[in-house]
Structure formats: structure tokens, C-alpha cells
């Protein structure tokens, strides 16, 4: 059960959570996330799609924010 490095999807959730991107008013866009995490936009887009399908983020018109479910999913890693 060794603690592994955070996966890309978890880094995205952590960034959104720590930036308090909780709603469309405080959302982040793809460029901000890709720049902060230093990853390609194409990789980011595929991860965002997966996270959205799982209900961990909301993602409309380039406005991206974390959901309650996403916060709990992220924090369960450290509880």
C-alpha cells in the first residue's frame, strides 16, 4: 500500500480544490490548468473528459470546477 505519486487526474483535482474552483464563478480554464501542471493540452483534455464522466468535475465551455464528489474522491487518498 505504498503511497504512490499522484496521478495526473488527481493532480488536476488537487489544483482545482486548492484553488477553490468550486463553481462556474470560480472555475479554471484548460490553459490555466495545463500551465500550472505543466502538461500538454491534449493529455489534459482526455483526463478532463474521464473526470467529467465520473462526476468528479463539471466542465462547460472551458469553465472547469471540482464537484463535492471530486473533493471526497481526492481526499480519500490521504484519510
Amino acid at each position: 500500500m505504498r503511497r504512490e505519486e499522484l496521478k495526473i487526474e488527481e493532480k488536476i483535482l488537487l489544483y482545482l480544490n486548492s484553488s477553490r474552483a468550486y463553481s462556474s464563478d470560480s472555475s479554471k480554464n484548460k490553459n490555466e490548468i495545463a500551465t500550472f501542471l505543466n502538461i500538454d493540452l491534449s493529455l489534459l483534455e482526455s483526463e478532463l473528459e474521464k473526470l467529467k464522466n465520473e462526476g468528479y468535475i463539471e466542465y462547460n465551455d472551458n469553465n472547469i470546477y471540482i464537484t463535492d464528489k471530486g473533493i471526497i474522491r481526492l481526499m480519500s487518498r490521504f484519510s
Binding site: 499522484l6 488537487l14 480544490n17 486548492s18 484553488s19 500550472f36 487518498r77
Partner: peptide, 13 residues
């Protein structure tokens, strides 16, 4: 408490 502090790793946060 509102914590707005963009972090890329959990411990920093």
C-alpha cells in the same frame, strides 16, 4: 476556513 492556495502536491496544500 476558505483556503485558496493553488498546490500541485498534497503536503504543500
Amino acid at each position: 476556513v476558505k483556503v485558496e492556495f493553488p498546490s500541485y502536491d498534497f503536503l504543500t496544500w
